[in-house]
Write a protein that binds this DNA or RNA. Structure first.
Ligand SMILES: [Mn+2]
Ligand SMILES: [Mn+2]
Ligand SMILES: [Zn+2]
Ligand SMILES: [Zn+2]
Lengths: 138, 138
DNA sequence: GCTCGAATTGGACTGAGTCCAGTGTGACTC
DNA sequence: GAGTCACACTGGACTCAGTCCAATTCGAGC
């Protein structure tokens, strides 16, 4: 994730301990944390970081296109650092576990003109739901 | 929508003025109201209906499978009376307008086993985003 | 090291939604 | 048509996610 910090510095981002910690927390694959989860993990590394700063930083990362907001459940937004490889999500309806998935085919092409109502369509978001192996075993 | 009331009565639903009004408000095509919008329209017909009752009734209709919850924007849930014809949504990124759409093809078939991580996948939700003709004109 | 504009802070605030104890009423019975 | 009572309704308090803001701190260029 230091390449992320590198990119951000290049874009004139002032580097602070708080921003570094938020970026560190958002590292890895299949990471989809809520803002409060990010805050909890950030506090473990930098005890006095505030909720407001976590929200500010997440908002900036989203604006910069480095992090995506995903709304897979109907509660808190989740923040997804995997912004550079387009993907969709597979969600466990029981425990909420989320995996990144890469379906074949192009759902955009599946929407005929007659179903576009004059909209200029620019984006598709696909969410698969099911039961994860863990929950199926229990 | 009186066929809806009929079905519900058949399932032992006690018929009250409040429930009738909520069902009336949720009539029509491309209807995707928030709970507070439903409440506002219900109040116009039955001034003293409470927010709690609107929430309760919407929750029951969802449980009974007569209404769907959709989370197209990241604010309030929306309630969709079009529960009996499967469909997806096309959302205007600017004004939030929502249309029901019926894409061709089956996105479920586009998720290979290797991308299922052992999940039992039962459902897919597709959201198209773009700009509606109204917003494009402005 | 200084300086100053940008970043951080915590606490108040908003909006969506839930919960609950007390009150009201639909539908069934006679 | 009145009586009953389980179920439904009410409004206000509460929770949770997120936003806002005035006062303070601090990174980085000089
Ligand atoms: Mn993801
Ligand atoms: Mn719909
Ligand atoms: Zn699970
Ligand atoms: Zn629009």
């Amino acid at each position: 994730m230091s390449d992320l910090l590198e990119r951000l510095r290049g874009r004139g981002w002032r580097m602070t301990a708080q921003r570094r910690v938020v970026a560190e927390v958002l590292d890895g694959d299949h990471v989809h944390l809520t803002a409060d989860e990010v805050h909890a993990r950030a506090v473990a590394k930098l005890p006095e970081i505030s909720r407001a700063t976590v929200y500010n930083t997440l908002g900036e990362l989203v604006t910069l296109g480095e992090v995506l907001e995903v709304a897979t459940d109907k509660r808190a937004k989740r923040y997804d650092p995997n912004a550079h490889r387009p993907h969709h999500h597979l969600v466990c309806a029981q425990c909420g576990a989320i995996r990144d998935v890469h379906p074949t085919g192009n759902p955009m092409a599946d929407l005929p003109d007659s179903e576009r109502f004059g909209f200029t369509v620019s984006d598709v978001e696909v969410t698969y739901r099911g039961v994860c192996p863990n929950c199926a075993a229990a």
